[in-house]
Design a protein around this nucleic acid. Structure first.
Lengths: 193, 193
DNA sequence: CTGATTACTAAGCAAATGCTTAGTAATGGA
DNA sequence: TCCATTACTAAGCATTTGCTTAGTAATCAG
């Protein structure tokens, strides 16, 4: 690309790296309970840099959601590629538990947490982003379920919906229940299919 | 009771009534996103009155949780009295959906919302209150399930745990899914119990 | 009516919020 | 070396936060 202006000082930080750190903070504390000062500390850069790179607190958060999706995609693509039907989805539930675990606590799912926190009052751009996330997972479940030729379209839709909602429950439950309770839940939940 | 001091001006507001209003606000917005100024407006009383009656914002919220539990108990006691086993619990799920509906939106469950929002970082008194709520409902489910003499203790425990977690999922899902999707979920969730 | 007691209003506090700005340091083509 | 350009630091902005305080109004026994 043609450059009119002279080169000048370059950024002292990597944007992806600082977003990764911001994401961890939002994930732990939620959107409202994370201040720009806290972000400053965690990201290790000045407020000015935060605003010059991401525009606003909302902007930082949106990048974090994107980064979260990428992270989550590492699990999701296992399911995308597998042709194990219900078994594959069940594995996905277990993979999520591993994914959402933290050194000293349970963080649940960043997206679900945010939906729950912001509800209808959140920034519309963020809310759109969040709803699409839920639908992507539901579609993924539907695709996997429809590998079973015994299931008609209505059944697939119903079960995909069921599994999506169960997933929501799991993300919430993962924050307060024990590992054994969570495993019990998954095992019982999949008996309904 | 023996009264040493003179009578003086009495409160111009009913504490139960203003708590009811505060609860509606917390329920809609969550704890962190509700300010004392907002409470002042919604409750219709001065900040001083709020603090003199309830001590702190936390204090107001704790009263709201108590009030919420009472409200919820109107549904819960139907299940307590019924001897319908699984059918009764299923009805409880539907009753909750009605309960959590609002004129212009879905509020989910105040307790679940708060657990999700505050996680481990919340005021310990509030957190204790919230966890006991979950256990009460789980126990209620277990009592209802054990009416079926074919179910051994382990099965009852496992299924009560499953239903409790499903309930968590439903409270979350009730905020973002359509009525039909929610009904689909309940029907599938109870298929194999 | 007096005066003690309690509840009211409204102004004000320090701290924290999201965001900006003024000034300085680094970079690299001319 | 000069200087346009960009990124840095740190101070500061108005607003909002949870909570308090100073002063006034109502109540009622004596």
């Amino acid at each position: 690309m043609y450059r009119i202006y002279k080169m000048a000082r370059s950024k002292q930080y990597n944007e992806e790296e600082v977003i990764e750190k911001a994401m961890a903070l939002f994930w732990r504390n939620g959107y409202g309970n994370t201040s720009v000062r806290m972000l400053e500390k965690e990201m290790g850069i000045n407020q000015f840099s935060i605003y010059s790179s991401f525009g606003s607190k909302n902007g930082v958060f949106l990048e974090c959601i994107k980064s979260y999706k990428k992270k989550m995609h590492r699990i999701t693509e296992i399911l995308e590629k597998s042709n194990n039907g219900v078994i594959g989805i069940k594995q996905y539930f277990y993979d999520f538990l591993e994914f959402s675990k933290d050194d000293n606590g349970k963080k649940g799912c960043l997206v679900t947490n945010t939906v729950n926190e912001l509800g209808a009052h959140g920034d519309p751009i963020i809310m759109t982003e969040l709803k699409s996330f839920f639908n992507e997972i539901k579609t993924l479940f539907a695709n996997n379920l429809s590998q079973d030729k015994n299931k008609d379209l209505a059944t697939v839709e119903k079960q995909a919906n069921y599994l999506g909602t169960s997933m929501l429950g799991l993300t919430l439950a993962s924050k307060i229940l024990s590992r054994i309770q969570l495993e019990d839940y998954i095992e019982t939940a999949f008996k309904n299919l």
